[in-house]
């Protein structure tokens, strides 16, 4: 079997990803809503959940599952990292997961098949991710009737 080249992350990622012919482009022009520490050049992040997230509405193009929140995060104090101890994920109308932001012991390279203007074969590192948002516990039941919850769809099954 021939060896497969793995290309390094492209510099000036924005143009690199915009040029890809894939249906979904990695977008770097949208504002990243995550805390700065979780932001990567390509905008990729990792969220780990114990169990699986089931969504009901199969016809829908996009499944709004819920909200991700870092209640202790204060963008004015980027050096204070205590906020990393608490992350909340609201799933559907009735579940809440409590988790935290973890620094990965070894950063993860995100690999994908190489694509873009030149048709060189092989793989490429899209980005390097150093943190993940980990929800390691079972969901707690909540009664949540906030605004904009009508179209939420999802349930965590452990």
């Amino acid at each position: 079997m021939p060896s497969i080249p793995i290309y390094p992350p492209r510099t000036g990622t924005t143009t690199g990803f915009q040029a890809s012919g894939q249906k979904i482009n990695l977008q770097t022009n949208t504002q990243n809503p995550l805390p700065t520490i979780l932001q990567t050049p390509s905008g990729l992040a990792l969220i780990e959940i114990q169990g699986t997230v089931n969504t009901q509405n199969l016809a829908s193009d996009e499944r709004n599952v819920g909200w991700l929140d870092f209640p202790l995060y204060d963008p004015q104090q980027p050096d204070d990292q205590t906020w990393m101890k608490k992350a909340l994920l609201f799933v559907g109308k009735h579940q809440r997961l409590t988790g935290e932001v973890k620094k990965l012991p070894k950063p993860l390279g995100v690999l994908r098949r190489r694509q873009g203007e030149d048709s060189e074969e092989g793989l490429e590192f899209v980005d390097v991710v150093r943190y993940k948002v980990l929800f390691a516990h079972r969901p707690e039941p909540i009664g949540w009737k906030g605004a904009g919850t009508d179209d939420l769809d999802g349930e965590v099954e452990v």
């Binding site: 809503p33 995550l34 805390p35 969220i47 997230v53 969504t55 996009e62 499944r63 709004n64 599952v65 819920g66 909200w67 991700l68 929140d69 870092f70 209640p71 995060y73 963008p75 909340l88 994920l89 609201f90 949540w144 906030g146 999802g154």
Partner: peptide, 11 residues
């Protein structure tokens, strides 16, 4: 429920 940092999560 969430503070100002809440982000909608979709799959």
């Amino acid at each position: 429920q969430g503070g100002h940092t809440a982000a909608q999560f979709s799959i």
